[in-house]
Simulated scan of single mutants.
Amino acid sequence: MTQTTGTAGDPPYLRIVAAIRRRIADGELAPGDRVPSTRQIASEWGVALATATKALTTLRLEGLVEARSRIGTVVATNTPPTPAAAPRTRPSPAAHTATAANSPAARASEQELTLDRIVRSAIDIADAEGLAALSMRGVAARLGVAAMSTYRYVPSKEDLILLMADAAYGEESNPVDAPAHWRARIEVGARTLWRVYRKHPWLARISSLTRPLLLPNLLVHGEWMLAALDGHGLDPNTLFDIHVLLYSHVQGLAAHLEMEADAEAATGQSEDQWMDSRAPVLQELVDSGRFPTFAKVVGSFEDGYDLRLDALFELGLRALLDGLTPVVEG
């Protein structure tokens, strides 16, 4: 486990802050470099995600780091002078937060605070660091306002996530002129939804088929697909079953985008590195003789199997539509 440089009696998040602060002071982390994400901090220091989030929030309040959409948290371009070691006597985090919240800049931010700014900032955090990194306090810190300010607009994190999801689904739209053929229309709608999940990997994991999100902008996508299937003599149950099946194909594959990000943060290994580390286990399975077909297929790959989610999405969509054609047109 990583050793920090803070005072032994400090709470864990302050010891993490001290360690990252020292890396910045020593030049190990330069302006623009990525700092550990909340998931990486949780894994590296063995702390809860909430503790990791609190550490990054403290560093943001100090002006040492900043979050950038789809990049992550990086060392701020104009960082304030950083001491070589954290002072032994310093204001408490609560006093630090209160001072920042009462500054002229914070008061100006309070006056400019809107629900849309809160939602957009929350989306940026989730895109960059994953949904587990999201907190109401973290959103407030990113916006430079008091921690409780966001609650005047959104009562809870759960409500915020619903607003984020609705906004995300509304970012991509289908063409005004729909293709005439049902299959072409389904292809357009599925690819539009796939683009949404590609932009926001966290989105596919916040709902299930059995408990769908009843969001206006998600229903816009659903309406497009249902309209493509309507008018072909399908009974309502079959029509809706097909719609759910098509949606599950898109969402099911997209869920792996965030799962891989979580796994990489937890293990510190990329997908390829993880597979390379399992090479002895794989070779043992191949050599066992118990799985001849598996051994034959795996052995035929010249450079290993490359899992491509975009290609799998297209392959699955084509196979589904081929199989559904006699049902829709029969």
Rank of each mutant, 00 (worst) to 15 (best):
A76Q: 01
T192G: 15
S109P: 03
A295R: 00
I71A: 10
S109E: 10
E260Y: 07
S135Q: 06
I41E: 01
D127H: 12
A167T: 09
G289R: 02
A146N: 05
D116F: 06
A105Y: 10
P12H: 03
E314M: 08
A85S: 15
L257G: 06
Y197D: 05
T267R: 02
V176D: 15
T210E: 15
S103G: 12
V281F: 08
D177S: 14
I24E: 05
M275R: 15
A122H: 03
G9S: 05
E187T: 06
W194F: 07
G144L: 09
V244K: 10
D33C: 00
L56M: 05
A126C: 03
L14W: 02
R137A: 15
A165C: 08
Q111Y: 01
H232M: 06
A295P: 03
V47E: 00
E284D: 05
P91M: 04
L218H: 12
F313Q: 09
V281K: 07
E112N: 14
P91G: 05
R39D: 12
Y151Q: 09
A319N: 10
N217P: 04
D306A: 09
P81G: 08
Y13G: 02
E110F: 01
H256L: 12
D116Q: 13
L315D: 14
A30D: 00
T77N: 09
P83C: 01
A94M: 10
N174V: 14
K157R: 13
R183T: 14
L214D: 13
R107S: 07
D322G: 01
K296L: 12
L203Y: 03
V328R: 10
E187W: 01
V328E: 04
T150H: 02
T97C: 07
L64K: 11
A85W: 08
D159G: 05
A255L: 11
S103F: 02
L312T: 04
M148P: 12
P175M: 05
R90H: 02
I16G: 02
T79Y: 06
T79K: 06
P80D: 06
A265T: 03
E158D: 11
L209I: 14
L282E: 10
T210Y: 15
L257I: 11
G289L: 03
T5F: 15
A132H: 07
V286P: 09
A48M: 03
L134F: 03
D26G: 12
D276C: 00
K296G: 01
I71W: 07
A228F: 04
A263N: 01
I123R: 08
E62M: 09
F294S: 03
L115C: 08
G233P: 11
L49S: 06
L193V: 13
F294Y: 13
H256N: 08
A147K: 06
E110T: 11
F313G: 00
T150C: 13
H249N: 08
A167D: 10
A84Q: 12
S156C: 08
G130V: 04
T79V: 15
V220Y: 11
K157I: 12
L245Y: 11
M225C: 06
A266D: 10
P326Q: 06
T210N: 15
A255M: 12
L64W: 15
H181S: 14
V75G: 03
Y153I: 02
T89Y: 08
A98Q: 14
L134E: 01
Y247S: 11
